[in-house]
């Protein structure tokens, strides 16, 4: 593998169940990401996505295994890994500026007020909230709150961003705008990003790599789907790309049927060596099973063109 910036090595999460038994949410989970990569995790509700993200953030400790970031096993939270919470988690007694400034002053404790304020202001401007600095979270719309969360995460210039369904509570229009913003910022700053989403199009637009998780309990990382779409893709013409539907169908197929049956169908699935699916390059599909993934995409009439670019 290339430079493994993040490497999750055999983590498990178990909770004590009733009458002494333990419930295993997932075990022996391995995944890795390169620096500057944008990964999305897709899986059904309750499969353990948030748990993985919390472990990656250091908010939660795995029952087994370790997480290596930048060559070091993590032990707890770090200012290098910023989290954008699903529920935005703004401090309601602070203003927009106050919330961002809190993060800034936590990272740079010796900075004076003016410097903290100026730095926070840059990031408030970046997410397009200029003019709302002195509003309290209760006076903001859902999209604006989420932007403050993004500004707060970015303001500490983290090495990676962890996002838990950051846009799921938003309307389609706001979601689109924020997706554009997050993508622009991540490309600009070379962020490594790990994002949980339920929105397949969001994953296709944003992610370089899509992690597909099977249903819990005992969830597994089933496949890593590489995004064949070009880096300079636009949100509005995404669906015009020849490989878009193949990719989308592959993911939706997985969510609809294979996420349930995967464990039974693939008894030889090696969690340490999760197959990487490269849509449009059937020959390169590294599947532990001999049967390639291609029949699904080929069955789509729109895909009869021979050229499989990228």
């Amino acid at each position: 593998m290339t430079d493994k910036f993040i490497s999750i090595e055999g983590i498990a999460k178990r909770y004590p169940g009733r009458s002494g038994a333990t419930t295993t949410i997932f075990e022996n989970l391995w995944l890795s990401m390169a620096r500057g990569e944008f990964a999305c995790v897709i899986g059904h509700s309750g499969c353990g996505k948030t748990t993985v993200l919390n472990i990656l953030a250091g908010l939660d400790a795995p029952s087994e295994g370790a997480v290596i970031v930048d060559g070091q096993a993590i032990s707890g939270t770090s200012l290098d890994r910023a989290v954008i919470f699903q529920s935005h988690a703004l401090l309601p007694w602070r203003t927009v500026l106050g919330n961002v400034a809190y993060a800034v002053s936590s990272k740079w404790r010796s900075w004076d007020r003016a410097r903290v304020k100026a730095h926070a202001q840059t990031f408030i401007d970046l997410v397009g909230l200029t003019g709302s600095e002195h509003k309290r979270p209760s006076e903001l719309s859902g999209g604006m709150k989420q932007r403050v969360g993004i500004a707060r995460a970015l303001s500490i210039t983290p090495k990676m961003m962890l996002m838990d369904e950051p846009f799921s509570a938003l309307d389609a229009l706001t979601r689109g705008t924020l997706q554009d913003e997050v993508r622009r910022i991540c490309l600009q700053t070379g962020q490594t990003a790990f994002m949980i989403t339920h929105d397949v199009d969001e994953a296709i637009y944003l992610a370089d790599k899509i992690f597909l998780m099977t249903n819990g309990p005992g969830a597994m990382l089933a496949e890593v789907v590489e995004n064949p779409l070009p880096k300079d893709r636009g949100r509005t013409d995404l669906h015009r790309h020849p490989l878009y539907y193949a990719l989308r169908n592959h993911i939706i197929d997985f969510l609809v049927t294979r996420s349930k049956t995967f464990v039974a169908e693939r008894p030889d699935h090696d969690p340490r060596n999760v197959p990487t699916v490269q849509i449009g390059k059937p020959g390169l599909t590294i599947a532990s099973d001999a049967k390639p993934e291609s029949p699904r995409e080929a069955s789509w009439p729109g895909l009869s063109r021979p050229s499989t670019s990228s």
């Binding site: 908010l59 707890g76 939270t77 770090s78 200012l79 989290v83 919470f85 988690a89 401090l91 500490i156």
Partner: peptide, 25 residues
């Protein structure tokens, strides 16, 4: 918990967390 988690991800120490998050909350 999410407010505490915000403080934790920002590596805010116990004393500062008590005064900046728990007390106002």
């Amino acid at each position: 918990k999410e407010w505490i988690n915000v403080a934790r991800t920002l590596e805010v120490g116990t004393i500062r967390r008590a005064f900046t998050v728990i007390l106002p909350a």
